[in-house]
Simulated scan of single mutants.
Amino acid sequence: MTSEYNDSQQTNEQPPIRNEFASKRIVKRDFWLIPAYAGFNMVLIIMLLSMTMRTLTYLFGPMPENQFERSLMSWGQIYTLIGQCLILLLFYLMHKKTIIPIAMQRFKDLKKHIILIIIVFVVMYLLLGVYGWFIELLPEKYQFDDTVNNKTIEQLFTIKWLWPILFLDIVIITPIVEELLFRHLIIHELGKKLTYGAMYVVSILVFAGLHVIHATSPFEIGPYIIMAIGFVVAYHFSGRNLATTITLHMANNFISFISIIIPFILGK
């Protein structure tokens, strides 16, 4: 986990942790995460899906359209989780000698930022509520009951055996991967050369933009901008402690996961 904290925060009894992230020099090899994200989350998934569906069709014959779509979604989610895990594995291998003690120290420091996480979380959801009210005042063509991104995710929950995989992906793995990309790379590393203030803005826009690629209303970007601002605020006021935003991101995604799964459990 990265942060502008220096190892001076450790007690005198502890040996200092070698932390190259605290250096003013950009950790250039970390930017391999960007092509890795494109490769593992896009190219690899498309290739594996194509091979899988061709194999299933060869073995069992053509499937009805509905069954084909459900199979496509199921395998796509499995490969998505694998791709996300490969990204984390790559990051670990690039820093295997130091990342575990650094991460442990950052999460130990979380107790200093619990109030910050709670405040940002509450304010974020209040703003999302206000934004939802604002959307209802817009002309009907701009209104939406949920973002396309969320609707796509909700479709996956119709396949109940995927729920454990969805939990691992949505609540655990995706927050870590996205925080590495949008906070660690864009803000912490690029900010060393391009100023942190500018990279805060870039991080917000890139995060929000990538979540509304298939949006039908331009206002669908609003909820993601609010969330991105919340993550950036928590990141800034925690001294750029990535463990803080990972925790906040996980909490946000956990609430989303629960809000989606409860209606399915209740049969609504």
Results as ranks from 00 to 15, higher is better:
Phe31Thr: 08
Val43Tyr: 00
Met63Arg: 10
Gln67Pro: 00
Tyr79Asn: 00
Ser71Asp: 07
Gln77Glu: 07
Tyr79Trp: 12
Leu56Lys: 09
Ser71Thr: 15
Gly83Glu: 05
Arg54Asn: 10
Cys85Phe: 04
Met53Gln: 12
Thr80Met: 12
Met53Ile: 04
Leu59Pro: 08
Thr57Val: 05
Phe60Ile: 03
Ala38Cys: 10
Ala38Gly: 14
Ser71His: 15
Arg54Ile: 06
Leu33Pro: 04
Ala38Lys: 09
Tyr37Lys: 01
Gln77Cys: 05
Thr52Gln: 11
Trp75Ile: 08
Ile82Phe: 05
Cys85His: 01
Glu69Ile: 15
Gly39Glu: 05
Trp32Phe: 09
Phe68Arg: 13
Val43Ser: 02
Leu81Ile: 08
Trp75Tyr: 14
Tyr37Cys: 04
Tyr37Pro: 00
Leu33Asn: 09
Ser74Phe: 10
Ile78Cys: 09
Leu33Gly: 12
Phe40Trp: 10
Arg70Ile: 07
Tyr37Ile: 03
Asn66Leu: 14
Tyr79Gly: 02
Ile46Thr: 14
Met47Thr: 03
Arg70Asn: 14
Glu69His: 14
Ser74Ile: 03
Tyr79Pro: 01
Val43Met: 07
Ile45Ala: 06
Arg54Ser: 13
Ile82Met: 08
Trp75Lys: 08
Leu44Phe: 02
Ala36Asn: 02
Leu56Tyr: 09
Trp32Lys: 01
Leu81Met: 02
Ser74Trp: 05
Met51Ile: 15
Met42Thr: 15
Met73Ser: 07
Phe68Ser: 04
Met73Asn: 14
Met73Cys: 04
Tyr58Trp: 13
Met47Gln: 05
Thr55Asn: 11
Tyr58Ser: 13
Ala38His: 11
Thr80Ile: 05
Pro35Ala: 09
Phe60Asn: 13
Gly39Ala: 05
Pro35Ile: 04
Ile46Gln: 11
Ile82Leu: 13
Trp32His: 03
